[in-house]
């Protein structure tokens, strides 16, 4: 007989990790192409509200997922147009994407605050009360399994395929990639939209399963933690997944400490994820001595005449 509390902790860890990880994986893909998108928080928020609105109005959960993912991808294309096509500053554009995304989602979701979902995203194998570790893993919803599939696929493509190598060349040295005949701007444009789609998937996971309701600013900095996770993972999918599990574990553990007999101030508990993120980021940067593994071309707009 396994401890029920432990199973609850494991379940919460997996869910919190999935939420963070999908957004990180999307950002990882975008950054691998040499585009930095600081708009993750805004993109998650747009996906979250679009998915939630669709779910409330249609009761069709799969349609809601698709709408959420597509809205974020389209929203991310603003960043792609401004930074890839028009070659403007990626930091500025990404930051404003976050601000715009939060404002747009608040505007759209204004009439949906406090509404309940008729159907939420259910466990894929219909396991309601898992009684052992395996069942906890099998009790997750479809997005969890998608996340695992994506990790394996993305890692395999980046490491073992010609396409992956050519793709990474764009982020490492866009001029060399261009002279190899790779369409740099097209690659970067699509990679930015894919990053948005992943953030949207993370958003629908938030509003259709993790919480599930809609309020303003409910992303609560998760987009920024996802950005930190990409650095934590050294731009490698598996390491980013491990980072997400670690953060998911901490997010799940801290509120539960009380049940293990620790007296904690609830207000302090709320800010621990942010403190831990900073702490981990600092320790990691010191440990790696500045060699982070970032794509070399990140943040620099590609312009052929610069050759």
């Amino acid at each position: 007989m396994v401890d029920i509390q432990f199973l609850g902790l494991l379940n919460a860890t997996l869910q919190a990790a999935t939420l963070l990880f999908i957004a990180s994986l999307g950002e990882l893909i975008t950054e691998k192409s040499g585009i930095l998108n600081l708009g993750v928080e805004g993109m998650i928020s747009v996906g979250a509200v679009a998915g939630f609105m669709t779910a409330v109005n249609t009761n069709n959960i799969f349609l809601a997922i698709i709408v959420g993912v597509l809205s974020s991808a389209i929203f991310a294309s603003i960043h792609a147009i401004v930074t890839v096509t028009l070659k403007q500053d990626q930091t500025v554009s990404g930051l404003i994407l976050t601000i715009l995304g939060l404002a747009v989602s608040s505007l759209l979701g204004k009439n949906y605050v406090g509404k309940k979902l008729e159907t939420k995203l259910e466990s894929l194998f219909s396991i309601e009360n898992p009684s052992n570790v395996l069942e906890v893993f099998l009790s997750q919803n479809i997005i969890f399994y998608l996340a695992i599939t994506f990790t394996i696929t993305v890692s395999y493509i980046l490491k073992n395929t010609m396409f992956g190598t050519r793709f990474q060349a764009v982020g490492e040295d866009s001029k060399a990639a261009d002279s190899m005949g790779i369409n740099v701007t097209k690659t970067q444009f699509i990679a930015t939209c894919i990053g948005g789609a992943f953030a949207g998937l993370s958003g629908v996971y938030l509003t259709l399963s993790y919480v599930p309701y809609w309020t303003d600013n409910m992303t609560a900095g998760r987009g920024w933690i996802a950005l930190a996770l990409v650095i934590f993972g050294g731009w490698k999918p598996y390491r980013t997944a491990i980072g997400a599990l670690l953060f998911g574990f901490l997010e799940a553990l801290v509120p539960r400490l009380q049940t293990y007999g620790f007296e904690l101030n609830p207000y302090i508990v709320k800010i621990t994820p942010y403190i831990i993120t900073i702490l981990v980021l600092v320790l990691l940067t010191i440990y790696k001595g500045g060699k982070t593994g970032a794509p070399k071309n990140i943040g620099i707009a590609f312009f052929r005449e610069n050759r």
Binding site: W224, L227, A228, I271, I278
Partner: peptide
């Protein structure tokens, strides 16, 4: 990232 996270703290 560090300055942004201090906002939440």
């Amino acid at each position: 990232i560090t300055t942004l996270l201090t906002n939440y703290i």
